[in-house]
Design a protein around this nucleic acid. Structure first.
Lengths: 140, 140
DNA sequence: TCTTGACTTAAAGTTAACTTTAAGTGCTAG
DNA sequence: CTAGCACTTAAAGTTAACTTTAAGTCAAGA
C-alpha cells in the first residue's frame, strides 16, 4: 500500500506515518520508485499505537513496548501498572469533580470564603492533583 | 514580600512567578529598588491558579476567569462545565482501566487475538479516548 | 569603598507529538 | 515526450508552561 492508502484507512495523516516510521514505531517494507510500501499489518500496529497513546503511554514508551516485532507480546505487568496509574488518576479526577460541583452550589459570599473550596485550593497547591488532571483535555 | 519569600511560601519558583506576572496572572504592587514587592494576597491567587490548573484549565483560561480582580468571583456555570468534562474523562479512564486489566488477565495466545483487546484497539483508533487519558501522567 | 548575593531583564532553550514548508523525484496519462 | 500529481526529504515551525542563561542592578555588610 502507498502511504495515502494507509492514511485513508487508518485516519493517521501521511506526515504522521512518516514521523512514526522515523521513530521506529512502524515500518515500510520497501519502495516502489521513491514511494514507501506498507503491508496490511501496519494497520494493527497503528491501532496498537493508538491504544497505547490512549492508555497514556508516550510514543517512546510504546516503541519500547511493541519493539520491532511483527507479533508484539505485551508485558502483562506493564498493563496492570498502567491500570493502577489510571485508577489513581480516576480517584483524583473524582475528587476534583466533586469539589467543583460543590463550589458551583456553594452559598458562601465568595469562593475564597468557602471552606471546602479553600481545602481544594490547598490540596492543589500541594500538588495533590498534579499529573492527574493536568493534561486531560488539551490536545487538539 | 520579596519574590523569594513568595516562592518559599508557595512552592512556586521565582522564575515561574515572574512568568505568571508577565501573563497577568499575578501582580506585584511596586518595587523596592529593582525588586518586585508582593502582597500576602498573592498567596490566595497562586492557590487559585494551582486549583485551576489542577481542574484542567490552561493558564490563559485561568487568566480569563480570575481576571485582574482582587476578589475574583468565579462563574458557577464554568465550574459545572468543567465538572462535566471531568465526568466524561472519568468514564473513559475507567473503560481504559478495565480494558487494560482484562488484557493483563486474558488467556488468548496473543493480545492481538483477544476480542476485547481488539475492541479496545478499535475504539482507540476511532479516537474515542482522545483527550481523556492522553496527557494525564506526563508533566514532570 | 568594595564585595557579595539576591534580585533584574531579554532571549533562548526544553519537551512531545506533530504539522508545515520548500524543493525535489518519478510513475502515468495524454 | 511532457505535464501533473502523488510522493519524497530535511528542516523549520507549533503549542504550553516553564526553565535556563547571560549580562546587568542594587542594597547592605565588612
Amino acid at each position: 500500500m502507498d502511504i495515502s492508502e494507509v492514511a485513508k484507512l487508518s485516519g493517521v495523516s501521511a506526515a504522521t506515518l512518516r514521523f512514526y516510521e522515523e521513530k521506529g514505531l512502524i515500518a515500510s517494507f520497501g519502495r516502489r520508485g521513491i514511494r514507501r510500501q506498507f503491508k496490511a499489518s501496519v494497520m494493527d500496529r497503528l491501532a496498537l499505537i493508538a491504544l497505547g497513546r490512549s492508555a497514556g503511554f508516550s510514543l517512546n514508551e510504546i516503541a519500547g513496548i511493541i519493539g520491532s516485532d511483527e507479533k508484539p507480546s505485551i508485558d502483562r505487568q506493564l498493563l496492570l501498572d498502567k491500570a493502577e496509574e489510571l485508577e489513581r488518576s480516576i480517584q483524583k479526577l473524582t475528587a476534583m469533580r466533586d469539589g467543583l460541583r460543590h463550589a458551583a452550589d456553594c452559598t458562601a459570599p465568595s469562593h475564597l470564603e468557602c471552606p471546602k473550596f479553600r481545602r481544594l485550593m490547598g490540596l492543589a497547591s500541594m500538588g495533590v492533583f498534579d499529573e492527574a488532571v493536568r493534561k486531560s483535555f488539551l490536545q487538539k
